[in-house]
Structures are given as structure tokens and as C-alpha cells.
Design a protein around this nucleic acid. Sequence first.
DNA 1: TTGTAGGCGTTATCAG
DNA 2: CTGATAACGCCTACAA
Lengths: 363, 363
Amino acid sequence: MRQVVTIKDVARRAGVSPAVVSRVLNAGTGPVAAGTRQRVLDAIKELRYRPNIGARELKTRTANTVGLVLADVSNHFFAQLADCVVARARELGWGVLLMTTQEDAGLERRSVELLMEKRVRGVIAAPTGGNAASWRQLRDMGIDLVFVDRSVPRVAAADVVHVDDEDGAHTATRHLIGQGHQRIALLAGPPDTSTGRARTQGYRRAVAELGARDDPELVLQADFRDDATAICRRLLSLRPAPTGLVLANTAMSESVMSRLREAGVDVPGQLSVVVFHDAPWTRLMTPGVSVVRHPVPELAQHAVDLLVQRLATTRPLRRREVALPSELVLRGSVRHISAEGGRHGPAADPSAIGRDGACRGLS
Amino acid sequence: MRQVVTIKDVARRAGVSPAVVSRVLNAGTGPVAAGTRQRVLDAIKELRYRPNIGARELKTRTANTVGLVLADVSNHFFAQLADCVVARARELGWGVLLMTTQEDAGLERRSVELLMEKRVRGVIAAPTGGNAASWRQLRDMGIDLVFVDRSVPRVAAADVVHVDDEDGAHTATRHLIGQGHQRIALLAGPPDTSTGRARTQGYRRAVAELGARDDPELVLQADFRDDATAICRRLLSLRPAPTGLVLANTAMSESVMSRLREAGVDVPGQLSVVVFHDAPWTRLMTPGVSVVRHPVPELAQHAVDLLVQRLATTRPLRRREVALPSELVLRGSVRHISAEGGRHGPAADPSAIGRDGACRGLS
DNA sequence: TTGTAGGCGTTATCAG
DNA sequence: CTGATAACGCCTACAA
């Protein structure tokens, strides 16, 4: 970094002291004569002076940067989340330091450490589930923390905004059941994530309500980095073959659908599918894919708002939790079948095909 | 930000001076006895001390943060780019400050200003095309700059790594021509972006080689924020209707495809399409969409590498430009038609359907 | 091998 | 209204 124009240069140019320049920079911080102010402003413009935010933060002990910790921005869900957070943050004049973890707890820990050393003002994170100690230390340093989408149970001092995934999975599974499916597979995230657990629970509850045997083979909890091909092989080798699938692992759903298609699996003729997260591609498949839609913009907005509130006040707020509902969006990837033992009925249920309307609660 | 443990606290705890602590922090910076070092290390651990990077940067005048300026992370192309850049940056111990501009030159300018004030070490950006003065000032401050994907012609001091879009558009158009299409529409980005210009040129060159009349109506240069529905209406109202379409506006291609599908347009029966950027959804449509594949990971890697090289040396390097080739990936969205006047031939060309192989150069 | 002192660019306090 | 002066947390000669 070469030498760059500082507040002193501006002061000299304007024929005043650095203190005065500082005052015009942060208006309201002290008196300054109109004439002087103009001279300073001119000097700033002529010299193209830019204040050094780092130095300012050192002095004032306040940052204008927040950290955003996500697994993977190439996943559309996180990408959309990041986009919303960054946009909202910019409106408030903040910078966003983006860290990705690839779902790796080690990388996550180092990300948190870097964020601490950078003295960011707050952090929004979709945590892997581990690193409770790191998150706590972050909080101990006075850095506010909001978990979004996922959470870490043992970190009490963090706000959390998430989707009611238990209900979402329950609704999705119930929908399949309502269309006559009895053998329904689930592909969820690992049980050490809060979303993986919640979605599995919702699925299990629906299956239990069906009174069906809870075949553990049907529950696939894949690591986010697992190979989609292997998962599909496992899925397709289940006997008797499931007629329904709840695809609740957002990181893998796209590639799983791709593999299924390559394998010649007819959706919904052969397999009915409901996917978590309303990614754009679900609308482009033929037929469209029924999804559990997550309110991503609201998720992001609440996360930022919770953080803002904490940053605005100095006294400690008690922990808050926002649970947003998801909605089941019916398109054409679920087929109605006759109730007897998972054999396919002749016709697709028109009510479940081609519609893009939403339907909350039980299907 | 509450009071937090500083180097002095560690020094006091270890019974040494702050200077010693600093030396063990930055090993190799000066001598320190083994026993002392251990006491300091212990104190650091006990106090859970984290150095204040901001203060360090103020002193050493070097940052470990780079800025990343993109239009919109919910666009898969940029998301993938961001993911690669962030991942690579982390390996090198850097933080990445992400700024999105929504293709708005004003937002871009403010982003650049914030980056300057943050005194980031370098910036990687896919610029809108304006703000030449801002980019220059960034460089004047000694902040290294690499343009990726797009560039600003009037900013000489920036490296640029991009895709040979002229060739890509030419190849795509030639492919359509080779399959018998004579009336081919283009949807590109606005002409004030380097990619919009290059793709339009490549298309024009191919059309000129065909010897066909260059119907200006066929060239749609849409602003990235334009409404996909309006564009589709315009597209579908062209008379005689084009039989081919080069979708070279990455930000809109997904929604345009969506609208076309909703409008009941048969691809490729009615309209043959080649899309820029190999987004995952192109593989999920039926049939798969032929694409001009951009080497995004290489794009990101080169961008980071160029930046690293600049950051590593103090003497000024001369401007470098890396042009990466794209490749045409044939799937099933282009149909072979008989040569006479744009009427559809009976059968799809088998060589252009269902293949996922790549074919560079002329089709 | 260790400690002291000065300063990075900025803001805050307090005399003029 | 303005200007010295002293931090903020850290690094680095240079002196001990």
C-alpha cells in the first residue's frame, strides 16, 4: 500500500488543523464555521481524500462490517440469502465479509477466528452445527450473532431465524401420503445440522401418522458433500421401490434430480418427488417440481433486522427466535396412485399438476 | 464493542513487555527465548487473545482483505465465481468483502468508494462498464485491480481475465446456421458492457458470413434488469418468427426460458436455443439445453492469481489480459431444419441431441 | 534477549 | 470556533 492522502494533508491544504477536518467529516461532532467547512470540503475534493475506516474504527471502537458465514454460495439457497443480506447491509452502509465453509467445521472455525480478529460488529451465519465454543467466544468478545436457517443448540446467546422445517417436511410427506403413496423415501442433511434433524422428524411424524412401518432404509441422511451418484444408486436399489421421495437436502437436490433423469427415472410416473427450496430450476423441469418453498428474502431480512437491533442498543437483549412458515407449492412432480401397496394408479391427480399456487398446512 | 483483551493484557499476564508478545505473534520478527515464548503462548491461550487485525494493518500498511464486486450473487454465474474466489482467498488467508451492484453504476461507485476507505489490498470485479474514474482512483491509491468476465476499456491499469465471448457467440450462431437456421435472434446484455458488445459482434460476424440480411430487429440488447416477460413478448412477435435464438444474457436466460415454456413454445421444435453459461438447470430441462460453457473456476483462479502476483511484488507490473476459450456443449435444444427459408425439417439432427460432449471452434 | 518510545490515521478532550 | 494533545492496538527501531 503506497502512501495515500491523509487527514493531515487535507488539513494542511485547507490551512486548518486535522481536528477541524475530522469535525467536518463527522458532521455534528463539533462546531465549524461555514467558511472553514467549505475550504475543507474543497480540499477534500481536490485531494480526493478518502478517510481510513480502519483507523477510525480503531479509535472509535465501532466497526461497520458484518460477517456472513455460509456453507457454499453456489447453492442457490445460500446464494439468494447472501444476495439479500448484502443488499440490505449496503443500504445500512455496512460491508459484508463473506466466508464459506464447505460444510467443514474446521474451515468454519477458522472463519470465525478471522471474523473475531477483524473485529467485525456482528455475524450472520448458517452454522454447520459444531464449533459451539468458537461461537461463544465470538459472543464473549461482544460481537453480535444471528443464526439463520440453521442453529447451534448449545449457543444460547445467539438469535436465530429459521424455517419451520419440521412442519415443512411433515406437510410434504403428508401430501405424498394423501396422493396414495405409502413407501416414501427421505433424503435429508446430516443429523448434526438442525435442519437435518427437523426435516427427518417431520417426515417421521407423517409416516407414523400413516401407521406404516417406519423402514429405516428409507431414511437417507447424506452429508452435504456426499456423492449424489452413490445416493441415487442406494435410492434406486431399495426394494420394494419407494414411490415417493422427499428431497430435503438442498445441497444435493439438483444433482440428485439430474442423476435420476440420466438414469431414466420417470418423475412422477415412476417416482413422485417433493423438493425443499424453491430453486428456479424446479420450474424449468417437465413437469415442474413440487417444492417446499422457503421464504428466503424474509429469512435474510429478519436476520439483518435482529442484528441491527442488537447493534443499535448497548444493553443485552435476551435471545430471540423467529420461526417462519414454509409453503408447499404444487407443480407436477407428484402423482396420485391407488392406495393398494404402492402400485401405480392410471392417472395423475390433476389437482397436483401444473399448479403453481401455494397450499399451506396439510395437503 | 466491549473492551477486549489486548496485547498489553497478554504482556502483563506473561510478565513481559508488549514488544515481546508482538514478536512471538509474528515469528521471525525478532529473537525471543524459548521459555519466554512459551509463557506468552500460555498467556495468549488462557486469555483467549485475538490480535486486532485492523490495528496491525494501520501500523504495517498492509491489508489481508480483498474486495469482490459483482452484480448479483443469485445469478449462478456470479455465484460460482464468488464461491471459487472466496475459497481460493481463504487458502491464502484473505478475507473477501463482497459488494453487489445490481448492475447499477451508482451502487457500483459507492461500493468502490467503500472498498477504498476500507483500504483493501486488492479488488476483483465484474464491472458494469461505467465509473472509469472511480476505478482509476482505486488504482491510484495503490489498490490492485483485476477485472473478471467484463472490463472497462478506459481503465488501463487493471488486469483482465475474461472469456472470448466474440468467438463463443460466433460459434453458437454458426452452429445454428449449420443446422439450417437462417433467421436467428440474439438476446444479449446492454452494449455498455464488454460482454454485451463482444457477443453481439460474434453473432453479427456469423450472420454476415451466412450472407443473410442483418435484420436489426433480431438483435435484442436487454438491460440486465429488464423484464423477461416483455422481452419474450417482443421475441415472439417477430415476423417472420425466428427459428433460432442465442440467449447471451446470462442474467435473464433462466427467466426467459421459463417464460417461453409457459408460453408453450416448443424447444427445439419451434425454436432452437443456445444459452450462454452452463448453469446446472440447463441439464435438467427436457431436452437438455445446448450451452456455451464458460470456464468459471479457471476464470476465478486466474483472477486471484493475477491479483496475488501484483500483491506479492512492489514494482509495477504491466497490464495483463487473459482470454479463456469457451466451449459449445451440445445437448438437445437445437434442431436441424431444412435449408429453405426457415421451415422446419422433419427430424432432429441426432448429432446435436442428447450429447454432452464438447466441441470447440466451428460446429 | 528484552524493554522503551514513537507513530500508523483518526477521533475526543480540553484549552485557547 | 479552533488547535494541541492524547489515546485506540499494534509493530519496530533502537537502546539497554
